[in-house]
């Protein structure tokens, strides 16, 4: 699915990377634990998390993740946007719980990593 579809399903707000909404994503991984995110090998991965700090963005950078969804109404902070823009990431804020967001994305066709 395209990132734009994912934003629609989540009624999300795109905080940065609007020019990349046509990129395709295939897999989703929901975690607040960045070490678990760093164990994944999948490409075209969306990270769904409630952890809104700089290390979330650094983790996405190292793991080649191009789209991060922040659930539970967590707000993206300015230093996070700076690094995310540099690495051409799409950051999306979403008011739903992680459970709700994941359920919607799964119904829409996003696949689990395992």
């Amino acid at each position: 699915m395209k990132i734009s579809q994912l934003v629609e399903v989540l009624e999300g707000k795109v905080v940065c990377g609007e020019q990349f909404l046509d990129k395709e994503v295939q897999y989703g991984f929901a975690s607040d634990l960045m070490s678990d995110v760093l164990t994944l090998d999948s490409d075209k991965l969306v990270l769904i998390t409630g952890l809104n700090n700089l290390q979330t963005i650094r983790t996405a950078e190292m793991a080649d993740i191009e789209c991060v969804i922040f659930v539970r109404n967590k707000k993206v902070l300015p230093p996070m946007i700076e690094i995310a823009c540099e690495h051409e990431m799409v950051l999306v804020e979403c008011r739903f719980s992680m459970f709700n967001a994941v359920a919607r994305l799964s119904t829409a066709g996003l696949k689990p990593v395992y």
Binding site: S35, D36, L38, N53, Q55, T56
Partner: peptide, 15 residues
Amino acid sequence: EMGFGAGMGLPNMKK
């Protein structure tokens, strides 16, 4: 709280 410290770091480095 930064999303680390779950005892995955060194095993992941080894992997």
